[in-house]
């Protein structure tokens, strides 16, 4: 059976290459390890999936690799680097994909204007409403529980955000309440106000969930908030590798395989609006190695 399946796989790859050769700089990948077993009667040729990544990041590479192993259909990879949004849009449209996976907010912004496509975003924090996609972060309840296990004294949690973050903060509020933790929240309108609010908030909290809200943050304020929190012994949870590098206490992220699985799930279930993550990637100052307990 194995040689037959191998021959079929090679044929599928050849077809994908032939079809995808018309795109700008596409990179076609044929599903392999997780491909469904061959049937006696060949199915109709499935529509490809377009994967658009914001940048040429190593983490994106890991994610697309994971995605390739899970897709049972051909897909084509696009990267925004070196391409204009219009070129990307033309290439994606020409591919006529069944789904377009946008990894990262820039990719989402480029592809969201393409009409009549099934757009699935991933690694987009606080995405615009009415978009399908995989949550950027593990559920807050999972995060807080883990945090509580790591630092039981952290009972009062602070959070800052713009008006755009109300939904996120509401989720966080719910998770905190479920774990009997107190959430101190403050809505700000600028980076300076964020810094002022954080300084005023510090006496009231044990830890701080630092949402990556670009509309009210500047690099300087990010540094000063983390610095001020650290100096005052407050644990700070961040979701961005860049912010973690500045000295935050805990980094929470998504595992690539989980994200890839949730993308495939959304591709295969067009009725699903979103798909939460089920695993959590963490890095802490106390334990620098990735926590892959789940």
């Amino acid at each position: 059976m194995l040689p037959v399946r191998a021959i079929l796989l090679l044929v599928a790859v050849a077809i994908v290459i032939m079809v995808g050769g018309c795109a700008g700089t596409p990179m076609s990948v044929e599903p392999t390890a997780e491909s469904p077993p061959a049937k006696a009667q060949p199915k109709p040729r499935p529509q490809p999936v377009a994967v658009v990544v914001s940048r040429d990041l190593a983490s994106y590479g890991d994610l697309t690799d994971e995605l390739a192993t899970r897709l049972d259909r051909p897909y084509q990879l696009f990267t925004l680097k070196g391409q204009t949004p219009a070129a990307i849009q033309r290439s994606v449209t020409a591919l006529r994909p069944s789904s377009v996976v946008a990894v990262g907010r820039p990719a989402l912004e480029v592809t969201s204007s393409i009409a009549d496509i099934d757009l699935i975003h991933a690694q987009v924090f606080n995405p615009p409403p009415n978009h399908r996609g995989v949550d950027a972060m593990p559920p807050f309840e999972m995060q807080l529980r883990y945090w509580n296990q790591m630092a039981p004294h952290v009972q009062r949690i602070g959070v800052l955000g713009s008006v755009d973050m109300r939904g996120v903060i509401a989720d966080l509020q719910g998770a905190a309440e479920s774990l009997d933790m107190q959430l101190v929240r403050h809505e700000v309108t600028s980076d300076k106000e964020a810094l002022v609010a954080f300084r005023r908030m510090v006496p009231q909290i044990d830890g701080f969930v630092f949402l990556p809200d670009p509309s009210v943050l500047s690099p300087d304020v990010i540094r000063r908030i983390i610095s001020h929190g650290s100096r005052n012994g407050r644990q700070i949870v961040v979701y961005s590798p860049a912010m973690y590098q500045l000295g935050a206490s805990l980094y929470v992220g998504a595992k690539d395989r989980d994200v890839a699985a949730q993308i495939v799930r959304l591709i295969e279930n067009p009725d699903l609006q979103t798909s939460p993550l089920t695993e959590m990637l963490t890095r802490t100052r106390d334990r620098l190695a990735a926590n892959e307990s789940r």
């Binding site: 990041l57 990262g104 907010r105 670009p214």
Partner: peptide, 26 residues
């Protein structure tokens, strides 16, 4: 007196360094 914001397009969430972020001053 100015405020500074990070451009959405530079994707703070996935940024590996603050230096790669673009900002706008108001």
């Amino acid at each position: 007196v100015v405020t500074e914001t990070i451009a959405m397009a530079t994707d703070l969430f996935n940024a590996e360094s603050l230096d790669e972020l673009e900002t706008t001053i108001s």
